[in-house]
Amino acid sequence: MYIVPISSAITPLDILSQNETAAADKSKTDSPSFADVFREVITDVTETQQVVNEDSARLVMGEIDDLHTIYNNLTKAEIAVETFVAVKDACQQSYDQIMQMSM
């Protein structure tokens, strides 16, 4: 049986503090910007709408037998659009409030 010496298993405190500051700096730079979030919402709406359009075409052609898949995709698209509208409304309200501020 091999025994690990205590001195090699203990990390110095200065190394731990450097790791914590590096993690804090990383979390600051890794947070998504508003443009990234808004772009992701728009992409989600576009993708779900494309899936619904493809499902509709496949349903008309008789290629789909399970309607629950179409319903689930339609619900996802509806939620994506509602999320997009909510984000857009929040942006517009924020902009209006900023414009009403006196300087």
Score class of each variant (00 low, 15 high):
residue 8 S to M: 04
residue 27 S to T: 15
residue 95 Y to N: 03
residue 94 S to E: 06
residue 13 L to S: 04
residue 87 V to M: 13
residue 44 D to H: 01
residue 58 R to T: 03
residue 1 M to P: 03
residue 69 T to R: 15
residue 81 V to Y: 06
residue 65 D to A: 13
residue 31 S to Y: 06
residue 100 Q to V: 03
residue 42 I to Y: 03
residue 26 K to D: 05
residue 15 I to C: 06
residue 39 R to H: 13
residue 17 S to T: 02
residue 76 K to R: 15
residue 91 C to M: 10
residue 55 D to Y: 02
residue 33 S to F: 02
residue 90 A to H: 03
residue 96 D to W: 04
residue 9 A to T: 04
residue 53 N to A: 15
residue 61 M to K: 13
residue 2 Y to W: 10
residue 68 H to M: 12
residue 16 L to T: 11
residue 17 S to G: 00
residue 8 S to Y: 07
residue 84 F to Y: 14
residue 78 E to Q: 11
residue 81 V to E: 08
residue 31 S to C: 05
residue 60 V to S: 14
residue 21 T to M: 07
residue 48 T to A: 15
residue 87 V to L: 14
residue 84 F to V: 00
residue 13 L to P: 01
residue 4 V to T: 03
residue 54 E to R: 14
residue 19 N to P: 00
residue 15 I to T: 10
residue 78 E to V: 02
residue 70 I to F: 11
residue 3 I to A: 11
residue 56 S to R: 14
residue 45 V to F: 03
residue 44 D to G: 03
residue 95 Y to A: 13
residue 7 S to M: 04
residue 100 Q to G: 13
residue 67 L to S: 04
residue 49 Q to N: 15
residue 37 V to Y: 00
residue 17 S to N: 06
residue 11 T to E: 07
residue 16 L to R: 11
residue 77 A to H: 09
residue 87 V to P: 00
residue 19 N to E: 05
residue 58 R to S: 07
residue 5 P to N: 12
residue 61 M to Q: 09
residue 12 P to E: 07
residue 53 N to K: 13
